[in-house]
Write a protein that binds this DNA or RNA. Structure first.
Length: 259
DNA sequence: AGGTATGTTAATTG
DNA sequence: GCAATTAACATACC
């Protein structure tokens, strides 16, 4: 389930379980998951090294190794990380990093929209892919600068990873729901106050979800996220949740209070 | 059987 | 160049 809070959760999981152990083997269960390497090159790059740190930018995860290469993961729609001390990899494991102690870290991805790559520099890769700033390191002023002067719809703007990296369909809907803004509103019709409300909602939603994932807790009941279904009562105003396809994605919102 | 899915990108059109 | 739209990618679930 990968937007920014989920990828941050994977980052912490990777950091907690898979650092500073020598890699004994890399098993490629399905080579279609590899973005810019072949199985033998992936193995040559990583066997004998250790992961030393993990960083995240938007929905991208980068693990530095004790050599000069980085592992670069993107989770697509259904990517996941599973560390296990022993046993067989799960049904949808596409690559498994096996450690000297017999444990493995598997990259799972049922739908294969994610990928595994090897890069020389996380920083260069962020630039090369034209990723915008990570929202957790974005000031209110910088956020306003991204929104201001754009004519397109606010939802499309927020989903575009080159504007801000890390928001996806669910959390953009959540931000707009909590900010009472219609997803179709043109960015240049938003007031300063609305932009500032969106910024605060964005930070609160992302930080809260990271905390909730860490404690394995569900989203708050007054949020949209677990009520994404047509005709559900709006947990804010008593209206009805509407569903529409906007900018290619299924969008849920409350037409009563989001204007 | 058909609709749906947390993402990205290329192609097309305005 | 920007913005909107659609299709495509591959797979499973209900």
């Amino acid at each position: 389930m990968p937007e920014l809070p989920e990828v941050e959760t994977y980052r912490r999981y990777f950091e907690r379980h898979a650092l500073e152990q020598e890699l004994a083997a890399v098993d490629v269960h399905d080579p279609r998951i590899l973005e810019n390497v072949t199985p033998p090159i992936l193995q040559r790059r990583f066997v004998g090294t250790r992961f030393v740190s993990v960083r995240r930018h938007g929905k991208h995860l980068f693990a530095a190794t004790s050599s000069d290469r980085w592992l670069h993961l993107h989770f697509g729609m259904s990517g996941d990380l599973i560390y296990s001390a022993a046993g067989e990899p799960s049904r949808f494991a596409r690559v498994s990093f096996r450690f000297r102690n017999g444990a493995r870290l598997s990259f799972d991805d049922m739908r294969l929209f994610g990928w595994v790559a090897v890069v020389d520099s996380a920083e260069d890769e962020i630039v090369r892919r034209e990723l915008g700033p990570d929202p957790l390191e974005l000031s209110a002023r910088a956020f306003a600068a991204i929104v201001n002067g754009r004519r397109g719809a606010i939802k499309a703007l927020l989903m575009n990873q080159s504007n801000i990296a890390g928001l996806g369909n669910l959390y953009v809907d959540e931000m707009l729901f909590q900010s009472s803004i219609d997803p179709r509103r043109a960015a240049d019709t938003l007031t300063e106050r609305e932009i500032s409300t969106m910024y605060r909602a964005m930070k609160k939603i992302l930080e809260t979800m990271i905390e909730l994932h860490a404690n394995d807790r569900p989203a708050p009941r007054r949020w949209l996220i677990d009520r994404r279904d047509v005709d559900n009562p709006c947990p804010r105003c008593g209206g009805r949740i509407t569903r529409a396809t906007l900018f290619g994605r299924t969008t849920y919102f409350c037409a009563d209070h989001q204007t």
